[in-house]
Design a protein around this nucleic acid. Sequence first.
DNA 1: CATTAATATGAGTATATACACCTATTTAGA
DNA 2: TCTAAATAGGTGTATATACTCATATTAATG
Lengths: 144, 144
Amino acid sequence: MAKPMDVKNCTNFNLRKAARVVTHLYDETLKPSGLRSTQYSLLTVLSLGGAETISNLAHKLVMDRTTLTRNLKPLQLQGWIKRVPGEDRRTRVWTITAQGRKVLAQALPLWQKAQKDTVSLLGKERWNGLLDHLKLTVQKVGLG
Amino acid sequence: MAKPMDVKNCTNFNLRKAARVVTHLYDETLKPSGLRSTQYSLLTVLSLGGAETISNLAHKLVMDRTTLTRNLKPLQLQGWIKRVPGEDRRTRVWTITAQGRKVLAQALPLWQKAQKDTVSLLGKERWNGLLDHLKLTVQKVGLG
DNA sequence: CATTAATATGAGTATATACACCTATTTAGA
DNA sequence: TCTAAATAGGTGTATATACTCATATTAATG
């Protein structure tokens, strides 16, 4: 059993370190598509969920609203998403464009490869366990 | 069993999301010390490992060398670390200062609280599993 | 109905991350 | 020894992340 007060067992440090190495694998694999891994996630959410306000997206992705403002910008500049006025004059709704769906379709097999490679590296059992623990972590720590 | 090709099960997305929520908890808890969670990790490594080159640190932390160049800067500006010439005229060695040790000592109980709170939220068993999976992930995916 | 609350968003600032490219120094080999 | 390769480090640029503060609009309330 790991000892919580040993610095080597810092939850945050180990999480960020793992995120670095995994993001590197996904970014590298997605490179031919021109998408970063984070951008792939964003585009996918937009492609599945339809038009969404930035606040909705932020809540769904457990991400700060202002982070999304910056993250959506390069996608917009590439013409992969566009912003249209919402019903409420305060809100703006983001939708994926045809170009966005196109680049996403090209990225899909690459993402699938990244997933497959990760499962291969970890083993199916371990990969399942990792995902399980991560989801529980978001659930338990998230709304604190 | 989670299905790898379901976007909701993207290893990278779930890892980054978990990192966001956990980092938020640690940053919030560490706030009175004036340290961010990442800075706490860096200072701790420097306090334990003695003088290190930036390349050594990067390897140890599984982090890009140039990331460290930027991350060390605010710590240097605060006077918590300092850079001295190494034996080789190419190398520069980083060491923690007395002020750095002081702020680290103040941050220690806060970090301990963050660890304790995280274990409480996840449960000891789950927390151990999470850490275990994260370490294995770094090990297996890291040197790819 | 006028004022206040709440909601939706963006901008300024700062840190975190890393790739591509560059310089300086040391080491290895011809 | 002289030169090419390896090593150590930094800068420019771009994205990722989020806090604080500011603005616009809507909803609530006296």
